[in-house]
Amino acid sequence: MTDQPADLLTAAAQRLINGAPEIADSNIAWTLAEWLKDAATREAAKVESAHRVWPNPDADDIADRDRWIANHVDQHALDVARAVLGQDGGQ
């Protein structure tokens, strides 16, 4: 599995849609999955926007772009996704 936030969020949403056993109430699982899918869409849009701001970056600009992306990740959604997937968030 990739470690890109949007991909992680999507994988967690899919696990909930497929029936994560940790959440017995399917309505809660569905709502959480929708929230994670929306978060994944926002994360992908942030990355795309950053690539538009820095379209032809040199090495310094790449570092700036990557730092900007990292500083704008929805950590709450990412923590939930990691919990759903059984991963240690490292926090």
Rank of each mutant, 00 (worst) to 15 (best):
T2R: 12
T2M: 14
T2I: 10
D3A: 15
Q4P: 08
Q4D: 15
Q4E: 15
Q4K: 14
Q4C: 12
Q4M: 15
Q4H: 15
P5A: 09
P5L: 12
L8D: 09
A11T: 10
A11W: 03
A11S: 09
A11M: 06
A12K: 03
A12F: 02
A13N: 07
Q14G: 05
R15M: 03
R15P: 04
L16C: 05
L16G: 02
L16W: 03
I17S: 03
N18M: 11
G19Q: 09
G19P: 06
A20T: 03
A20G: 13
P21E: 11
E22D: 13
E22M: 09
I23P: 00
A24Y: 07
A24N: 08
A24E: 10
A24R: 11
D25L: 04
I28K: 04
I28Y: 00
I28S: 02
W30D: 04
W30E: 09
T31S: 07
T31H: 02
T31G: 06
T31C: 00
T31Y: 00
A33V: 02
A33C: 03
A33K: 01
A33H: 00
W35E: 06
W35R: 08
W35S: 06
W35C: 02
L36Y: 05
L36K: 02
L36E: 07
K37A: 11
D38I: 08
A39Y: 12
A39W: 04
A39S: 15
A40G: 10
T41W: 11
R42P: 08
R42T: 14
A44V: 01
A44Q: 14
K46V: 15
K46P: 06
V47E: 09
V47T: 11
E48R: 14
E48A: 15
A50K: 11
A50Q: 10
H51N: 15
R52T: 08
R52F: 05
R52P: 06
R52N: 14
V53E: 13
V53A: 14
V53Q: 14
W54H: 15
W54L: 10
P55I: 12
N56K: 15
P57E: 13
P57Y: 14
A59S: 13
A59C: 09
D61T: 08
I62C: 11
I62G: 05
A63M: 01
D64C: 06
D64P: 00
R65H: 07
R65I: 00
R65L: 08
D66L: 03
D66A: 00
D66C: 05
R67T: 10
I69C: 02
I69G: 04
I69K: 05
I69Q: 03
A70F: 02
A70P: 01
A70T: 05
A70M: 02
N71F: 03
N71H: 06
H72P: 04
H72E: 06
D74K: 03
D74H: 01
D74P: 01
Q75D: 07
Q75G: 02
H76V: 04
H76N: 00
L78K: 04
L78Y: 05
D79H: 05
D79I: 03
D79S: 05
V80H: 04
A81W: 02
A81C: 04
R82G: 04
R82K: 12
A83R: 07
A83M: 08
A83D: 05
V84F: 07
V84L: 06
L85Y: 04
G86V: 10
G86S: 09
Q87Y: 10
Q87K: 14
Q87I: 13
D88L: 12
G89R: 14
G89P: 11
G90R: 08
G90E: 11
G90Y: 03
Q91V: 12
